[in-house]
């Protein structure tokens, strides 16, 4: 709980401590963490997004639907199979910091919106990759659920996007 420790430290020092010590704390704890999030977090995110776009383009021929039926199902082909994928992506310190500011004024938390979108795109791609490995070329009934790992209600929980995706893989082709 690095974030919690910092807050505790700040509170501990502000009680009866001079203001310049608070500023010292801010400079030595908060700023490096934000810079860390700014540089590494942004790089990780940019790389992930580029990878997602590339993989999505490579898999654009796979038919993805969330219909309960099997649209354009092939007359012959392997038995349909369940595909499931999990993704847990952490927020970085800058995002968490921006969100805490946004909470004061209200409005869209863009940094977290992007995080959630990344997790969902990644989850669907993992479904596709599993389906391809099984020799399928379509997925129907795609479901994206969020998962609560270890209690979002507990204090000091780190913001993260957790997705559990499931679908049924099958083959498309000349219909039955």
């Amino acid at each position: 709980m690095a974030g919690d420790g910092r807050i505790f430290l700040l509170k501990g020092r502000t009680r009866g401590a001079p203001v310049d010590e608070l500023i010292f704390d801010l400079l030595f704890f908060l700023v490096p963490l934000i810079v860390c999030g700014l540089i590494i977090g942004r790089t990780v995110e940019r790389r992930h997004l580029a990878g997602l776009t590339e993989r999505e383009a490579a898999n654009s021929h796979i038919l993805i639907t969330q219909l309960k039926s099997f649209p354009m199902v092939a007359a012959l082909g392997p038995d349909p199979a369940l595909v499931v994928a999990e993704v847990v992506i952490a927020s970085d310190y800058l995002k968490t910091f921006l969100a805490s500011w946004r909470k004061i004024f209200g409005g869209e938390v863009k940094s977290f919106s992007r995080l959630q979108t990344r997790a969902k795109r990644e989850a669907v791609l993992r479904l596709i990759e599993q389906a391809k490995a099984g020799g399928f070329n379509a997925i129907c009934n795609v479901r994206l659920d969020t998962v609560d790992i270890g209690g979002a209600t507990s204090s000091g929980k780190f913001p993260m996007a957790t997705i559990l995706a499931s679908g049924t893989a099958y083959c498309v082709g000349p219909s039955l």
Binding site: A2, G37, V44, V88, I89, A90, Y93, K95, V147, L164
Partner: peptide, 27 residues
């Protein structure tokens, strides 16, 4: 590991594995 990862972002592989294991067990 997750708390460190929360400073810089990126996938929490430990938690992803945890979910995969749980899902396999339940299934």
């Amino acid at each position: 590991a997750a708390s460190l990862k929360n400073l810089v972002g990126g996938e929490l592989k430990g938690y992803t594995e945890l979910l995969t294991e749980s899902r396999r067990e339940a299934m």
